[in-house]
Simulated scan of single mutants.
Amino acid sequence: MRLDKEKVRSEKLYSVGFSKELDSYVMSIVVPWTAWYNRYYRITKEEYDFFSTDELDELAERFRQEECSSDRFLKSDKVEENR
């Protein structure tokens, strides 16, 4: 998924940006596994503006824990995880 205005927080393994395709802000979380891949979650403009704050780091951690069961889960690069 291509994200415009992407901001990368490499030490926390996530990035945020705007998806023109979805007309929405998105958080992309790296999942370290045998072959690393990304999961994508819908976020708000306000959350996007919180980049590099504890609040956004906590949201990323919540998404990691919820995995694909989050109500904001959009898709995964690992095909088996997509609904």
Rank of each mutant, 00 (worst) to 15 (best):
M1T: 01
M1Q: 04
M1N: 06
R2C: 00
R2Q: 09
L3H: 02
L3G: 07
L3T: 00
L3A: 04
K5E: 13
E6I: 06
E6Y: 08
V8E: 12
V8I: 14
V8N: 12
R9S: 12
R9L: 09
R9P: 00
S10V: 09
S10H: 06
S10T: 10
E11F: 06
E11K: 08
E11I: 06
K12P: 04
L13E: 04
L13Q: 12
Y14M: 01
Y14K: 08
Y14A: 03
V16P: 08
F18R: 02
S19Q: 07
K20E: 14
E21P: 00
E21L: 05
E21C: 02
S24G: 09
S24W: 03
Y25E: 11
V26W: 00
M27K: 00
M27Q: 06
S28C: 10
V30A: 15
V30P: 09
V30H: 13
V30W: 13
P32R: 14
P32Y: 08
P32L: 10
W33H: 14
W33S: 14
W36V: 10
Y37F: 11
Y37H: 08
N38P: 05
R39C: 12
Y40N: 08
Y40R: 07
Y40D: 08
Y41L: 03
Y41R: 12
R42Y: 10
R42V: 02
R42T: 06
I43Q: 04
I43D: 01
T44L: 06
K45T: 08
K45Y: 13
K45I: 06
E46F: 02
E47P: 01
E47Q: 12
Y48D: 00
D49W: 05
F50Y: 10
F50R: 11
F50G: 05
S52V: 01
S52D: 12
T53S: 11
T53E: 01
T53C: 01
T53W: 03
T53K: 02
T53Q: 04
D54E: 15
E55V: 12
L56Q: 02
D57R: 05
E58D: 15
L59Q: 07
L59C: 09
A60S: 09
A60M: 03
E61N: 08
E61K: 04
R62T: 15
R62N: 14
F63E: 00
R64P: 03
R64H: 03
R64Y: 02
Q65D: 13
E66L: 11
E66D: 03
E67N: 15
E67V: 04
S69P: 05
S69T: 15
S69W: 09
S70K: 09
S70G: 03
S70H: 09
D71C: 13
D71N: 13
R72W: 02
R72V: 00
F73P: 00
L74D: 08
L74P: 05
L74M: 12
K75M: 10
D77R: 10
K78M: 11
V79E: 12
N82Q: 07
N82D: 12
R83I: 10
R83M: 10
